[in-house]
Amino acid sequence: MRAAVIDLGTNTFHLIIADISDANVQIIYKTNVPVRLGQGRINENIIIPEAFERGVETLKIFKQQIDKYKAQQTVAVATSAVRSATNGKDFVDAVRKNASINIQVIDGDKEAEYIYNGVKATGIINGTSLIMDIGGGSTEFIICDNNKLLWKKSYNIGAARLMQAYFHSDPISEQDKSAIINHLNNELTDLKEACILFKPNHLIGSAGAFETFAGMLLKEDIEIKNIKSASIAFTTYNSLSEKLIASTHAERENMPDLIELRVDMIVIAAILTNHILSMSEIKEISLSTYDLKMGVLYSFAD
């Protein structure tokens, strides 16, 4: 069967088309567009008109590719930006009318489940692990071992939300950093309790910001787009995160392997990741390039 999956993220829309047979997934086409659906007013739960229009136009183009490759089934899933927006239903209706795509708005639990399925397909889970997927609107955490999912939760602490609420200085000030950390401490009490209970010793970052971290650290050794997973050395990650957090916007703009979409959000991602590493006392970090969209594809193969 040929299937298409669209992941309508808060920052980026992804399209992936694959042939699926007997638990084997062969990707034949993929693309992504930095739609920035959460631009400007995500914390007010509104998709602004410019972002609304970009989203619809992008999905019209995606539909052309889906038709070109003759996909027999299409699944489009929307996450935090659409599910929290007061005009989210209007967006879903506009896409159905103008792009002939039916969007499923999934809750945070389902999002975490798909992320787990995607990461599991890489084979990287070894022992008790904490999977972390930093989105623009939400961040998902999943604790699992080699055999099963143990605990999962989605929090409205995505990079775009935190950036719009707290990132008001350049470089980011101690005051702004403290405000973020205080917010995380208040939001993540049950995650901390879960880490104490299950004792994960491996942090697996699902795509997104972790692809950026890995790309900046491992660029001479691997091509991120050609791998399923990679190890990230704890000490070199710490050095990179300190550099990113201390840098100005202009300095980050000139850093190689840092895409425009993440020039500012990578600071938030580094602060968030550092907080999780400190809270969990984890010293082993890996990247999984498989995330929600791959989890949806592999659900076809089950």
Rank of each mutant, 00 (worst) to 15 (best):
258 L>H: 06
279 M>E: 05
248 T>G: 08
126 N>R: 15
188 L>T: 07
43 N>F: 02
272 L>R: 01
12 T>F: 04
113 E>M: 13
142 I>T: 04
36 R>E: 01
13 F>P: 00
244 L>D: 03
277 L>A: 09
231 S>N: 12
14 H>F: 05
164 Q>S: 15
115 I>F: 00
163 M>G: 05
301 A>L: 06
100 S>D: 14
70 K>Y: 14
184 L>Q: 07
256 P>T: 05
123 G>T: 06
297 L>K: 07
43 N>V: 09
82 V>Y: 02
127 G>V: 02
220 E>Y: 14
19 D>H: 09
235 T>N: 12
268 I>G: 10
72 Q>S: 14
174 E>F: 13
59 L>T: 02
281 E>V: 01
238 N>M: 08
61 I>S: 12
61 I>R: 11
297 L>Q: 02
168 H>T: 12
192 K>H: 12
205 G>I: 10
40 G>F: 00
178 S>C: 11
43 N>T: 11
120 K>F: 10
191 L>T: 04
91 F>T: 02
50 E>T: 04
75 V>P: 04
5 V>A: 10
221 D>C: 09
46 I>A: 02
302 D>H: 08
157 I>R: 10
267 V>K: 05
261 L>D: 03
19 D>L: 05
227 I>S: 04
284 E>H: 14
64 Q>F: 04
18 A>F: 02
112 A>G: 02
128 T>F: 00
257 D>T: 00
81 A>V: 12
206 S>N: 11
133 D>H: 01
53 E>T: 12
250 A>Y: 06
94 A>S: 15
251 E>V: 08
174 E>M: 15
186 N>I: 00
84 S>L: 10
302 D>G: 11
13 F>V: 06
179 A>F: 09
17 I>N: 03
286 S>N: 11
85 A>D: 04
202 H>G: 00
83 R>Y: 08
157 I>E: 06
212 T>V: 12
33 V>S: 13
268 I>D: 01
24 N>Q: 14
112 A>V: 04
126 N>P: 06
92 V>I: 15
180 I>K: 08
83 R>I: 14
291 D>H: 07
69 Y>M: 05
245 I>C: 02
5 V>C: 08
46 I>E: 07
99 A>H: 02
169 S>T: 04
31 T>D: 10
87 N>D: 06
87 N>W: 05
191 L>H: 03
218 L>M: 08
94 A>N: 10
279 M>D: 05
1 M>V: 07
250 A>P: 03
212 T>S: 11
296 V>T: 13
183 H>V: 00
26 Q>L: 11
123 G>S: 07
263 V>N: 01
244 L>I: 15
270 A>D: 02
236 T>I: 11
210 F>C: 09
244 L>Q: 02
7 D>R: 10
148 K>L: 09
116 Y>N: 00
302 D>W: 00
213 F>Q: 10
30 K>Y: 13
33 V>W: 09
4 A>Q: 05
161 R>D: 00
30 K>A: 12
277 L>K: 13
44 E>K: 02
88 G>Y: 01
187 E>M: 04
8 L>W: 07
127 G>D: 06
108 G>D: 03
258 L>Y: 04
117 N>E: 08
85 A>K: 09
14 H>M: 06
222 I>M: 15
250 A>S: 10
298 Y>H: 14
32 N>R: 15
21 S>C: 09
262 R>K: 14
280 S>W: 09
295 G>E: 05
148 K>T: 09
165 A>G: 01
153 K>A: 06
98 N>R: 15
202 H>V: 01
